[in-house]
Amino acid sequence: MSAAQDRRYLALALSLGRRGQGRTWPNPAVGCVIVNDGRIVGRGWTAPGGRPHAEPQALAQAGDAARGATAYVSLEPCAHHGKTPPCSQALIDAGIARVVAPLEDTDPRVSGQGFAQLRAAGIEVTTGLLADQAEADHAGFFIRTEQGRPFVTLKLANSFDGRIATATGDSQWITGPVARRAVHAMRMRNDAVMVGAGTARGDDPSLTVRDMGVDHQPVRVVVSRRLDLPLSGLLARTAKDVPVWLCHGADADDMLQQTWDGLGAELIRCDVTGGHLDPRSVLQGLGAAGLTRVFCEGGGALAASLLAADLVDELVGFSAGVVIGAEGTPAIGAMGLARLVEAPRFELIETRDLGGDVLHRWRRSGG
């Protein structure tokens, strides 16, 4: 294969893998393309729940045509026996001649061993191609593996002057329908949507993906130290239909804990620091439960705590051409910064127009 062909087929494998984002946790969302004599003979991506993996699905589609073929995989094939056999062995048994993958898996159960097994079996292994894209696609899985927490995207939709509501709390709608639809698409690609208790009380949100034709929903996470949330709200009424996880402190009322448990919510006890739930403890709890990608939609206090603790990996802003004024509600709460050098910094990676609103995406500096 030429370098251009390798890039083309590996790019396809990466795009297939992204189809599984938000549905494969705690496993990575991997794509696989099998090519023999210039013809695609098999394709696959990680199934919902994380299994079966991409490689065996592509191999099953390829059948005998896999012998002597090249497999393009968006992450190093697994090499350990878990709930499914190793994908590296499946590739060997199928007679694959060459494997092209961008980078190693950071899971210590794999971490180079999959490539080593393939090479030991006489299979040519090519790595490094499209590594930056693969790093971005698998960032959630990597961060959970290395740090025990999910990748965090903080989304803010605000007025030109950084407000999310007027002084009376009126907030619907600051941005237009195109921007709101983009938010639903982003929710769909994450394992969970997270908000603070104030947002859950004030907005009574559903936090679901709507009008996208999906057959699954992200986990809905609310950070509430005391579990003082409306028991008649949308989240309470639908907790048995779409998962609701509540991060709370040890001092949450026992009766409220029992009530939410009875409603179908999953309770995650977290540490309290300075009178508030410790954001690092919250994310560690979510990571331990298997989440790899969390889409945080505020409010201001939760956003400030995550930023102050340096736990935001990506910022997504939707800015509207409306001005509310200083009496409006700020998008981000107090962070206690004395000097500008203490402020978290992000690097711009994308801007675009969305129906008259402006989308801007930023990644953690140096990330």
Rank of each mutant, 00 (worst) to 15 (best):
residue 213 G to S: 10
residue 295 F to R: 08
residue 13 A to T: 12
residue 6 D to N: 10
residue 363 R to V: 13
residue 280 R to H: 11
residue 233 G to A: 07
residue 325 G to W: 12
residue 278 D to Q: 05
residue 237 R to E: 13
residue 246 L to W: 07
residue 208 T to M: 07
residue 172 Q to Y: 12
residue 302 L to P: 00
residue 80 H to R: 06
residue 191 D to I: 01
residue 356 G to E: 10
residue 77 P to L: 05
residue 128 G to C: 05
residue 366 G to I: 07
residue 147 Q to V: 00
residue 335 M to A: 09
residue 325 G to K: 10
residue 8 R to H: 11
residue 131 A to W: 03
residue 235 L to D: 12
residue 178 V to A: 15
residue 350 E to W: 02
residue 161 D to Y: 15
residue 25 W to A: 15
residue 247 C to K: 03
residue 312 V to P: 10
residue 13 A to R: 06
residue 51 R to D: 10
residue 333 G to L: 03
residue 224 S to A: 12
residue 97 A to N: 01
residue 45 W to S: 10
residue 284 Q to S: 12
residue 266 E to T: 13
residue 140 G to I: 06
residue 137 D to T: 10
residue 114 G to V: 05
residue 133 Q to S: 12
residue 178 V to L: 12
residue 124 E to C: 01
residue 245 W to M: 14
residue 143 I to C: 04
residue 172 Q to N: 15
residue 73 V to A: 00
residue 337 L to N: 02
residue 337 L to Y: 12
residue 231 L to V: 09
residue 29 A to E: 09
residue 28 P to Y: 05
residue 3 A to K: 02
residue 88 S to C: 04
residue 219 V to I: 10
residue 63 G to F: 06
residue 122 G to C: 03
residue 115 F to M: 04
residue 160 F to L: 15
residue 65 A to K: 11
residue 27 N to T: 06
residue 101 A to M: 15
residue 204 D to A: 02
residue 15 S to K: 15
residue 49 G to V: 09
residue 28 P to H: 07
residue 279 P to D: 10
residue 333 G to Y: 01
residue 228 D to I: 04
residue 184 H to E: 13
residue 178 V to K: 09
residue 362 W to C: 08
residue 259 T to S: 08
residue 364 R to K: 15
residue 58 A to E: 13
residue 71 A to N: 10
residue 228 D to R: 13
residue 189 R to P: 00
residue 165 A to N: 11
residue 305 S to E: 13
residue 353 D to R: 12
residue 349 I to M: 03
residue 318 F to I: 13
residue 224 S to C: 08
residue 297 E to P: 08
residue 229 L to R: 07
residue 206 S to T: 14
residue 271 D to M: 08
residue 86 P to Q: 00
residue 360 H to S: 14
residue 309 A to M: 07
residue 336 G to E: 08
residue 183 V to H: 04
residue 72 Y to D: 05
residue 95 G to D: 02
residue 43 R to W: 05
residue 192 A to S: 03
residue 267 L to R: 03
residue 249 G to Y: 14
residue 343 A to T: 10
residue 228 D to T: 14
residue 249 G to N: 08
residue 15 S to H: 14
residue 254 D to Q: 10
residue 101 A to R: 10
residue 128 G to D: 11
